[in-house]
């Protein structure tokens, strides 16, 4: 075990995978000499060479399309898109190609590409360095969507993603790249994709969150202890395929649900969690399902602290839910 920040954990996972398997390679903008604009790939060019840490021209469709071609041939490419906000020129390659190759070929062409990309607000990034558009990807059959919130999970989930037979969109919460640190395992230690994690157990209300919303949700849950409220916090970790049994089991126990994400509310990922609960845990519910989310606007630069859910808003929503019934 060593101590690492979340971004260092990403770096160590890439290192572990590349050392273990010569068919793992990286491609993206500024990932080689520069080590990535967030330094996620620092030192990897020196260690593994320019054939495996490939600085590409500035084209997201080029990066992702190239990675798709490499994966069809059998390699395990890990593409970095500098910010999730810039992924859209490559959206056609993701949705029309990457997600559908196995399916449209009747199983002849698996296409296991990992696309790593920092997402989310809280870094004064304005409209185009802050968005949280995970729902676009979770909506697309054929993709897996993973969001870690701790260094250990970033390490173990990224290793799982790289050796997964399916394409994975790996969303890295850049706001907490360096603000959280913790122990990470050594070697090829994988966390399973598709499993939620109970951050803290509770009996009165379930709070569902992921990525950079885990720290404020944790703070909110802790502060409610003083009010005599026992809140369970579930880190979803994998958005697709979702761990429905964990979501349902938690609400069967607590009878109340608060869903937190920084993405816009309308058709946001939380709507799917609410629908799962309405379908499968309706008779366990004692109160309406609540959502604490971003607003249905583009992402505002100077006013981002008003846009993003914080511990106080989450706390209030949990209190309202518990007091409702």
């Amino acid at each position: 075990m060593t101590e690492a920040t979340l971004v260092q954990a990403v770096n160590r996972a890439l290192h572990t995978a590349m050392a273990a398997d010569p068919e793992v390679l990286l491609l993206g903008e500024d990932i080689g000499v520069n080590g990535g604009v967030f330094r996620a790939t620092e030192g990897l060019l020196k260690e593994f060479g320019a054939d495996r840490v490939i600085d590409t021209p500035l084209s997201e469709t080029g990066i992702i399309g190239t990675a798709v071609g490499m994966a069809l041939y059998g390699l395990k490419p890990v593409a970095e898109i500098q910010f999730l906000d810039f992924i859209y020129p490559g959206f056609d390659q993701i949705v029309s190609e990457l997600a559908k190759f196995r399916y449209r070929s009747g199983g002849q062409y698996p296409c296991h590409v990992v696309i790593r990309t920092p997402y989310g607000g809280g870094i004064k990034g304005g409209l185009y360095h802050s968005q949280s558009t995970e729902a676009y990807f979770a909506h697309t059959a054929g993709l897996k969507v993973v969001v870690p919130s701790t260094p250990a999970d970033a390490y173990g989930l990224l290793l799982s993603a790289i050796f997964d037979p399916d394409p994975v969109i790996f969303l890295e919460p850049k706001r907490i790249y360096r603000s959280v640190s913790g122990e990470i395992p050594e070697g090829d230690h994988r966390e399973p994709i598709g499993k939620a994690r109970i951050v803290r157990e509770g009996t009165d209300v379930s709070v569902f969150a992921y990525g950079a919303m885990i720290p404020p949700a944790t703070e909110a849950c802790q502060s409610l202890e003083g009010e005599g409220i026992s809140a369970e916090l579930v880190d979803l970790r994998t958005l697709s395929p979702v761990d429905s049994p964990a979501v349902i089991a938690s609400v069967e126990k607590t009878g109340r649900a608060v869903i937190v994400h920084e993405a816009a509310r309308f058709c946001g990922y939380g709507a799917e969690i609410a629908a799962i609960l309405a379908d499968k845990a309706f008779y366990s519910l004692k109160a309406p399902i609540a959502r604490v989310t971003g607003f249905d606007t583009p992402f505002p630069y100077a006013l981002e602290n008003l846009y993003l859910p914080n511990a106080a808003r989450i706390r209030q929503s949990v209190l309202d839910t518990v007091r409702a019934a």
């Binding site: 469709t61 080029g62 399309g65 190239t66 071609g69 069809l72 190609e97 190759f101």
Partner: peptide, 21 residues
């Protein structure tokens, strides 16, 4: 390789496959 209807998407994929080969 199995194709698709969107136009041109296979062009860049062929480049990736060539790099892999």
């Amino acid at each position: 390789v199995v194709g698709s209807s969107p136009i041109g998407t296979q062009i860049i994929q062929a480049v990736g496959a060539a790099m892999a080969a």
